[in-house]
């Protein structure tokens, strides 16, 4: 299994000369299972370029796993080339809501005045799935999704294949009102998703000094992201969902501070950037 990052910016796409090295596209990660089956994690603006690649390859069946439906995680769907091909079978997975179905919620984006084409007019065959509460299988992988702490229905994903594992929790505020390392793990949001994985991609949107004015917005400060990695005893931590205000230089600083905080052994935390590949073998 390997993962490639196509977008790791949080909240708003941020192109420009100050974000060239880490990238400005919003959340999208491609996972390739050992047999080549593609899984797509989130549909931020990074999914546009990935879609062109999948069309070139002639991939016909694609599973897109959405963590939640905030705009920065779905805004690329309308520009994902495979959806304009009637031969594509696109399975969209997302968190259940007590109020509306997944297709009805995504249909709010694919409708006037936000988008010129209605969901019903999309040529690809779309199949919507609420994520199950128990592990399930796609291709040769076992997946698990669990609700996590973020405003609105939101899940994190765990993917396992042939003894390798990764977790993807791009929007997460597990330390809201609590000190993570003082809790037993069963009281930590997202613990089951991340426990013991080889690689964890996790929200680290804010520097610690920025957090007090953004508490409750659903994102982690750096020290909480690192603490979560400690509690879950992950093999490696990749810091994700960069704040639009954070330039390349600021993210270099984030990496340095993360290295100072990390005390789990193994490789120190990395900062996600577009084009980064994570190979799990």
């Amino acid at each position: 299994m390997r993962a490639r990052i196509w977008g790791c910016r949080g909240s708003l796409a941020t192109p420009g000369h100050e974000t060239l090295r880490y990238g400005g596209n919003t959340s999208c990660v491609e996972v390739r299972l050992d047999d080549g089956t593609p899984l797509v994690l989130d549909a931020g603006t990074g999914i546009r370029a990935l879609g062109l690649e999948l069309v070139r390859e002639g991939v016909r069946k694609i599973d897109v796993l959405l963590t939640h439906l905030h705009l920065d995680h779905i805004e690329g769907l309308g520009f994902f080339a495979p959806v304009w091909n009637p031969e594509t079978e696109l399975h969209v997975w997302g968190p259940p809501s007590p109020v509306r179905s997944l297709d009805a919620r995504i249909g709010r984006y694919f409708s006037a005045p936000l988008f010129p084409v209605d969901l019903a007019e999309i040529p690809a065959r779309l199949v919507f799935h609420d994520v199950p509460s128990e592990p399930w299988e796609l291709g040769g992988a076992r997946l698990y999704a669990e609700p996590i702490s973020h405003p609105g229905p939101t899940v994190g994903y765990r993917i396992e294949e042939n003894g390798n594992s990764m977790a993807y929790i791009p929007d997460h505020e597990p330390a809201l009102g609590v000190a993570l390392e003082s809790l037993s793990p069963d009281w930590v949001s997202g613990y089951t998703v991340a426990a013991g994985v080889d690689a964890l991609l996790h929200d680290a949107q804010y520097f610690d000094e920025e957090y007090s004015e953004r508490m409750g917005w659903g994102h982690s400060r750096l020290s909480d992201a690192v603490s979560f990695g400690h509690v879950a005893e992950v093999g490696s931590l990749v810091l994700f969902h960069h704040d639009p205000l954070h330039t390349d230089d600021a993210l270099d600083d984030l990496r340095g501070r993360a290295h100072e905080l990390w005390r789990n052994g193994g490789p120190p935390p990395e900062v996600a950037c577009e084009g980064m590949e994570i190979v799990l073998a």
Binding site: P147, D186, T192, V197
Partner: peptide
């Protein structure tokens, strides 16, 4: 680590519901 994760977490120390 992946084996440890599922065996140790899914069956033994599963976190409480959010």
């Amino acid at each position: 680590r992946g084996d440890v994760g599922f065996a140790g977490t899914m069956e033994a120390a599963r976190s409480k519901h959010l």
